[in-house]
Each structure stands twice: as structure tokens, then as C-alpha cells.
């Protein structure tokens, strides 16, 4: 079989990144893990305790960056989905798949860390607060996305259908946000991105920004690792068939 004539519709049969396969640790992942660990150490021992909320506020350094990464991940899903329907390149579908999975993991972290924080602050595990409810629906939408992927045998159909859902899901988010916001809200207002000067003390702000940076790095590392898995699986499937 002559691979050079293969159009981009077909999964890559010859590995375009053969050099990255196998052996050696994933250095990007190691670096990201170290960065996250360092940030958490700083958050727990070297950042002052917030006067009103007490130690529970430290969960914030996990909760907020996880929520950011979840939104980033689903944004990437929407973007690669649009590009996939346009360019029909398998690699875009692999990125979408990987980003959705990583995004669901971080959404789960948000959903667990939110109640842990909320219990001492609000006095209840779960509140139907606007942003927490939105996160819950994000989790439902992208779990549905992953189930849909698992339920389709045909590679091309799976890519097309999940791209459609990836785009519609992103369109849905503002509507759910608006609905639950109108329904009720008692979530603390954003503290960093206010037009006036940030109201967080300097030390805490530094830690928060570091946590955003290290979690973003962790997202990129996980996305890259998951993407490699996806492309290698495609290659194996292609080899099986020929």
C-alpha cells in the first residue's frame, strides 16, 4: 500500500511522530506535576490564612484554576470541532477527544472542591448556586459527549457526530448560565478580574496566579499525553485493518 496518496480523511498510517513513542518519562508532565505541587505547597504553608473564611479558603487555589482549565478545555473542544468539520483532519478530532476527557476530569475536581469549600463557608454541601449548577451541567454535557464517542463504531461518523455535539455544547453554555443566573445566585463575585484594583492581598494574589499557571501547564501536559494515546490507537486500528 502506498501511503503517500492517502488523503487527510484517512488516519495516519505512517506515524508522523515516531520519535515520541515509547521510552523515557514525559518531561512536560513531570514539570507540570512539580509546578502544581510547588504551588500547593506555597498555598498551604507560605500564604497567609484568609481572615474571614479561615483555612477552608485554601481550597480556592484548586477550585478556581480547575474551573478555568475546564472552560479552557471545552473551549478547545469547540474550536477543534469547528475546524474538524471544515478541514476533516483526524488530528483535530483526536485533540477534541483528549481535551474533552481532560476537561471532564477538571470539572469533576471543581464539583468536589466546591462543596468542600462551601460546607464551612455557606454551611451546606450543595447549593444551587449559579456557577456551581452551570459546572454540573458542563459535566453532564461532556459526559454525554464521551458516551456518544463510545457508542459509535465508525471512526469518521464518531468524529463528525462528536464535532456537532462539541459545537452545540459550547452554544448551550451561555443559555444555561443565563437561566441558572436568573434562577438564583449567591456565589462570591469574581475577585481578580474586577475593573478596579484586585481586592486580594498581594501574597494571595501571587499564589492564585501561580495556581492558574501551573494548572494550565498540567492541562497542556495531560492533553498532550492523551492525544498521543489517541493517535497511537488510531494507528493500531489502521494496522489491524490492513
Amino acid at each position: 500500500m502506498n501511503d503517500s496518496t492517502l488523503h487527510s480523511h484517512a488516519p495516519p498510517i505512517a506515524a508522523p511522530h515516531a520519535g515520541t513513542r515509547g521510552g523515557g518519562p514525559d518531561w512536560l508532565f513531570v514539570a507540570a506535576a512539580l509546578a502544581v505541587a510547588g504551588t500547593l505547597v506555597r498555598a498551604i504553608w507560605f500564604t497567609p490564612i484568609e481572615a474571614i473564611q479561615g483555612p477552608a479558603q485554601k481550597i480556592f487555589y484548586v477550585h478556581a484554576p480547575s474551573a478555568w482549565v475546564a472552560f479552557l478545555a471545552f473551549g478547545i473542544v469547540a474550536l477543534t470541532s469547528i475546524l474538524y468539520l471544515w478541514l476533516k483532519d483526524w488530528r483535530l478530532d483526536c485533540v477534541a477527544e483528549s481535551s474533552a476527557e481532560v476537561g471532564v476530569v477538571f470539572t469533576t475536581v471543581v464539583l468536589i472542591s466546591g462543596p468542600l469549600w462551601g460546607k464551612p463557608i455557606w454551611g451546606t454541601w450543595w447549593t444551587w448556586d449559579a456557577r456551581l449548577t452551570l459546572t454540573l451541567f458542563l459535566w453532564f454535557i461532556y459526559m454525554g459527549y464521551l458516551v456518544l464517542r463510545g457508542a459509535i463504531e465508525d471512526r469518521a461518523m464518531r468524529a463528525r457526530y462528536s464535532a456537532v455535539l462539541g459545537i452545540l455544547g459550547a452554544l448551550l453554555i451561555p443559555f444555561i448560565h443565563l437561566s441558572v443566573y436568573l434562577f438564583r445566585t449567591l456565589h462570591p463575585m469574581p475577585i481578580v478580574l474586577k475593573p478596579s484594583a484586585p481586592s486580594l492581598p498581594g501574597d494571595m494574589l501571587t499564589t492564585l496566579l501561580l495556581s492558574f499557571a501551573s494548572f494550565t501547564l498540567l492541562y497542556i501536559a495531560l492533553l498532550r499525553a492523551r492525544y498521543r494515546l489517541a493517535t497511537e490507537r488510531d494507528e493500531l486500528e489502521a494496522e489491524d485493518r490492513t
Binding site: L6, R155, E237, A238, R241
Partner: peptide
């Protein structure tokens, strides 16, 4: 004219 399903033509 060529049509591939996965890697199979």
C-alpha cells in the same frame, strides 16, 4: 476513485 474506511480501502 478511492474510498478508505479507517485504514482499509
Amino acid at each position: 476513485l478511492t474510498r478508505a474506511f479507517g485504514g482499509r480501502r
